[in-house]
Design a protein around this nucleic acid. Structure first.
Lengths: 344, 344
DNA sequence: TATTAGCACTCCCTTTTGTTGAGTGCTAAT
DNA sequence: ATTAGCACTCAACAAAAGGGAGTGCTAATA
């Protein structure tokens, strides 16, 4: 059977209506709602075909139809009309420039949740892409060093290193010079074991102690793969009855709290990107079990210099895809603008 | 009417039973459950008295009794038998010593949630109580300085300072020496405006630029009053039907996400402390509206040197107070031990 | 005088039974 | 190919009925 133009129109009407109301859509509704001027009986026949083709389904006999995952997919891929979305309160947020990445991201998540009424998450840009700008070891205690590492975009990492032997001031100074001259300009991801081995060799005479410190520095640079994620609006899931029953809600909230799975999700969505950097997962398309009744829209953002992070929006399958995608586009460009603003 | 020994026993029995089952407790149950050897009829009379006195109440005629807030209060104050609680997985956690405060606190929250099956929160110790150990300004960029401030217990703060004029290496070095000699040993809370004014005076000749930097340093030291809070086990609230309906759950989850109110709550509970540092808020006793159907148990912990934080556990009013208080005590002493372990 | 057995009564909870209405599929007419 | 008409289905709501746990009261008992 072929999906002709009329069937498409009817499918689209069913989906649009269902997105709005959340109620199964009947033939009579469609007959009036569209400009097709067809009787409900005709629509019924068409809808039976659409069901057979797998685009819509009946929750039970004698109910209207709701879109299936396949139906949503078709809609998202070919029938949706994106439009830029005004993002409320975004300007304010941008006015007070955030020097702290953390604050900025938390705010983005919050604004997004308020605008869309869905649950949102945002992953901090991986620092491994950022170039090293400055590194410094300072003595804090007899056996403790503080390593401060500053990357492009002023991403700061601290680490307390425990060292067995005491270092002289001179050694420390030399180490600092060595580290800065050798590592400056490299991205954090580039500082690997080979690099460190080379550094150790450079350090030469100081041998053990320096080696120990360098190892610790290397570890603290690469270590922090924990991938921070900020979430907001989790309680929005209660707005959608299809997600709000105890079991599902509990699972979802847990996923949002644990953040482990979210991390993987956002990670995945970054790798296989399309040209636009926006991706939609409908129902079981995402790997997260507890979100099998949800749709997830993710967007990759960039703060310049390879600092890429991902934003995710989680809602019911009948989420307002147009609005969400539109909003995400706006945010993407706002963040981009913000970065360029930073540079000038 | 007097609350004699027998009435107390009955009240205790009612509460104990209700804590377990969550169902209103009838006279027949008590008659069998206790060793009082009284018939249900006698118990009924006594229960009528207890109700008149306000310790228990009937959800509706012909139902059993449930404890009132006043009843719970009496129970918590005089009838509860605390016992130390083994905290599962706590040892493991302590074995891998955490140098990062953040990780430690997150873990404590998690372990606590798993052990108690309630929602938990923990506030990071206020850094204002910590003594300054080390402070350093470094040039990151032509117009950007990085201030690193290390307090006792290796609490680290970073801040990027923007400066108008460029500083010479010499000035920077002098500033560092000045800051370290003058501020070392003071608590972060003690570094106030007067102190800074004095420093400015000391700096003397350098005038403006130094003043600017000092102001920025002062700000970054005292600024961070945001009071970080980590939560865990929010979804545990779904275990308790009396909290799990959409409206209440949504409000609660929101409170846990916003963290604003939690902060005030934990803050309050620290100020008016009893000798033990553990406090119980039953129902409306806490100021947080969305938690009027909950009980909250808070405990103050100390990591030495005035570094005090607060732990909170939120559950239904019929929470297992004995277990919760016991568990908190255990955690308190474990954290204490941990700090002492750090010192030796 | 304190306790208890007995009993009528209350009220929630669950199940049952109707009733309604939106929606369908099919058939026959257009 | 489209549509009017009709019988049928089934969720959702409401009213009715039954069951049961628990109470308060009264009168008997130790």
């Amino acid at each position: 059977m072929e999906l002709d133009e009329r069937k498409k129109k009817i499918l689209q009407a069913v989906i649009r209506n269902y997105l709005e109301t959340g109620e199964p859509v009947g033939s009579r509704t469609i007959s009036k709602y569209t400009d097709l001027n067809l009787s409900s009986a005709t629509i019924r026949n068409e809808m039976a075909d659409l069901e057979e083709m797998g685009y819509i389904l009946q929750p039970h006999t004698s109910a209207g139809r709701i879109p299936s995952d396949k139906g949503y997919r078709l809609y998202v891929d070919t029938m949706m009309e994106e439009k830029e979305r005004k993002v409320v309160e975004m300007e304010e947020m941008l006015l007070e420039r955030q020097d702290k990445m953390e604050t900025l991201l938390k705010q983005v998540a919050k604004v997004l949740a308020q605008n869309t009424q869905y649950a949102t998450m945002i992953s901090a840009p991986q620092s491994r892409g950022a170039k090293l700008k400055f590194i410094q070891l300072s003595r804090v205690d007899a056996h403790q060093l503080l390593a401060v590492i500053v990357g492009e975009g002023n991403v700061i990492k601290n680490n307390i290193l425990n060292v067995e032997e005491e270092l002289t001031d001179e050694t420390l100074l030399k180490l600092n010079i060595l580290l800065n001259t050798q590592l400056n300009g490299l991205t954090i991801g580039e500082i690997n074991l080979a690099m460190i081995a080379y550094l150790k060799q450079q350090a030469g005479i100081h041998g053990d102690i320096v080696g120990e410190v360098l190892d610790a520095v290397a570890e603290s640079i690469r270590d922090e793969e924990d991938l921070e994620i900020y979430t907001s609006g989790t309680n929005n899931i209660f707005r959608y009855p299809e997600l709000a029953d105890h079991h599902k809600a509990s699972e979802l909230i847990n996923a949002f709290e644990e953040k482990q799975l979210l991390g993987e999700l956002l990670q995945d969505s970054r790798s296989d990107k399309e040209n636009t950097g926006i991706q939609v997962y409908i129902g079981e398309e995402s790997s997260v079990q507890s979100m099998r009744d949800c749709s997830i829209v993710t967007a990759t953002y960039e703060l310049g210099g390879g600092m890429k992070g991902t934003i995710g929006i989680v809602g019911p399958k009948r989420m307002d895809y147009e609005k969400v995608v539109g909003t995400l586009r706006t945010i993407q460009s706002q963040l981009d603008e913000m970065y360029r603003g930073d540079k000038e």
